[in-house]
């Protein structure tokens, strides 16, 4: 790791990459009554971390390790059956790309932005941004794993009027699991792209399309 501070900048919820507008499926889970309390939130986040979180962390680690970002973008498509989630991932990827090119400009980011003008999958951009910032695969995986739980936790504070201290405690208790997921992702990124984890969560896939069709919603996804 060249600098812990660069990782803090990249993973900061205030980094202007648009993540605050997304709940990571939590809004649909709250509406369906599946998340009503801090303990429901913890189980939701644990499931998301080990499924979508692991998959994203592995893609990010692989991009940071220097795998071809276009091959990773195709792998991300194959791992994202929901069109709503693909749209979200590309929109977030485009926003992160804009912020990353302003923050840590570099030829790798320029090349991916030119090849995918409408946005590459966010974890791929995240990994490449980490690389451009001088960070390594484990750092990229850490940022992706953390983000997979921080989005729903932050959103549920607003959706349920949950005590923010409780939501933060949920995140803190999941920290060792997030570290473990990041280590798994980094290890997987040393292998072939086709062997990268493809862990998925059926309810996240199912509710993403329902949520995208709502007329009124607090979060974009």
């Amino acid at each position: 790791m060249s600098g812990a501070a660069a990782l803090l900048v990249l993973a900061d919820g205030r980094f202007p990459a648009g993540g605050h507008a997304h709940s990571g499926g939590a809004e649909a889970a709250v509406r369906a009554g599946r998340v009503r309390s801090a303990s429901d939130l913890a189980e939701f986040c644990r499931g998301r971390l080990h499924t979508a979180g692991l998959t994203a962390a592995a893609l990010a680690a692989a991009a940071a390790a220097g795998h071809d970002p276009l091959v990773l973008d195709e792998a991300a498509d194959a791992r994202t059956p929901s069109p709503a989630l693909r749209r979200t991932a590309r929109r977030l990827g485009r926003q992160l790309m804009r912020a990353a090119r302003a923050t840590w400009p570099g030829p790798d980011l320029d090349a991916l932005a030119a090849a995918r003008p409408k946005g590459a999958h966010q974890p791929v951009v995240l990994g490449l941004a980490a690389r451009s910032a001088g960070l390594g695969p484990l750092d990229a995986a850490q940022a992706a794993a953390y983000e997979s739980i921080s989005s729903p936790a932050t959103a549920v504070v607003r959706l349920l009027s949950l005590d923010p201290l409780e939501a933060t405690a949920v995140l803190a208790r999941l920290a060792p699991a997030a570290d473990e997921v990041a280590r798994q992702a980094e290890a997987a990124a040393q292998g072939a792209v086709e062997e990268l984890p493809a862990a998925s969560a059926p309810l996240l896939e199912i509710t993403a399309e329902q949520h995208a069709a709502w007329q009124v919603r607090l979060f974009a996804s």
């Binding site: 913890a42 189980e43 862990a199 059926p202």
Partner: peptide, 15 residues
């Protein structure tokens, strides 16, 4: 898919 006892979060609201 990784489901059943021992699979983290498998029965929570995301999975």
């Amino acid at each position: 898919l990784d489901l059943g006892p021992g699979a983290p979060g498998w029965d929570g609201g995301a999975v």
